[in-house]
Computed example of a mutant assay.
Amino acid sequence: MQRYHQGNKNGLVDHLELTRQTAFHEAGHAAAIYLENKQKNLPSIYFSIHTRKSERMEDRLFARVDDGRLVGDLATSTLTEIAGDPDSSDAYGFQLACEADIINFFAGPLAEAKYVSIRDNEIFNINLLTPRAIIHYGGKSDINEVMSYLEFLISSPKQREAKLNALFAEAFHFVQQPGNWKSITALAHYILYNSQENISCEQAIEVLDGQYPYANIPWL
């Protein structure tokens, strides 16, 4: 789960805004990995946030959430066994894990989109977005991952599209919840102003749980 931005040599404001968008994008991923999974009583999983910062405006900005997936390799022998008995509890659990991962993929670009809408004084409305529109918010790799999951799970294109839209709506609702947005904002701020290039899972969870004091952020 990563977000790349190319800095703009023509202005500091553009560079700073791209940095902020990146922070919200990765904070959205991390928040969903921890909070959404927790709300659904899914297993807790390890993740970390890696950033590479530079004072040079022409440098490409980089941030990435490492790990954080409930489902690893989609082509394991275990999954073959599950496919042989699609009505088993293992198969149901696997589907829930896949759906949680998909929501987590969507949460990053949606958090970035919400930040941009607030910044630009625009309405953040699900009717103005589509799942594939997240490519405009650094979500090209995210939508590719989502489609890989869905193509593995669902053979019917029509049913696959319906599931895509349903999980996108769940991710949108997650980002929109005031408590979740507060946590995303806190973590984005922490990513921006923490001098570390590697933020551990424990550090991120402390922030998401409200243990990071932040107030009066001027750019929100």
Rank of each mutant, 00 (worst) to 15 (best):
P43L: 02
A27S: 06
N10I: 15
S200V: 12
P131W: 13
M57C: 00
S89F: 12
N198C: 13
L96R: 04
M57S: 00
L42T: 05
E122G: 09
I33K: 02
P218W: 08
G28C: 02
R60G: 08
I154S: 00
K140Q: 15
Q2S: 11
L16G: 07
G28R: 02
N125H: 08
N10F: 15
Y190F: 15
V146N: 11
G72S: 10
T130H: 10
S200M: 12
R160D: 08
N144E: 14
A166Q: 14
N180D: 09
K158P: 10
I123T: 14
T19D: 14
M1V: 15
Q95D: 06
E26N: 09
Q95R: 11
Q177I: 12
T80V: 15
D120M: 15
N125W: 13
C98F: 03
I126P: 01
H15I: 11
K158N: 10
L96G: 01
G138I: 13
Q203R: 14
K140V: 14
R69P: 01
A113W: 10
L42I: 01
L129H: 12
A100T: 03
A111I: 08
R20Y: 05
P218R: 02
A107Q: 01
G93A: 06
L12N: 09
T78G: 05
C201V: 10
N165K: 11
R60F: 10
E99Y: 07
A186Q: 14
R160F: 12
L61T: 03
S117C: 11
I103A: 01
R69G: 13
L129P: 05
T19Y: 11
A166Y: 10
A97D: 01
Q6I: 14
G108W: 05
L61M: 02
P43K: 04
G179C: 07
N8E: 07
A186I: 11
A75S: 13
Q211Y: 15
F62M: 04
T19E: 13
S77R: 13
Q21N: 01
R20L: 07
A171M: 03
E170M: 07
L35N: 03
L74C: 07
E170H: 12
A111Q: 05
I199M: 03
N216K: 00
N198T: 15
N194K: 13
A204Y: 07
G139Q: 06
A30K: 02
G108R: 03
A171L: 04
A75K: 13
K53S: 00
I103S: 01
A215K: 06
G108C: 11
S155V: 14
I134G: 04
S195A: 11
K38M: 03
F106E: 00
A169C: 06
A215Q: 04
A27H: 05
A107D: 07
G139E: 07
I82M: 10
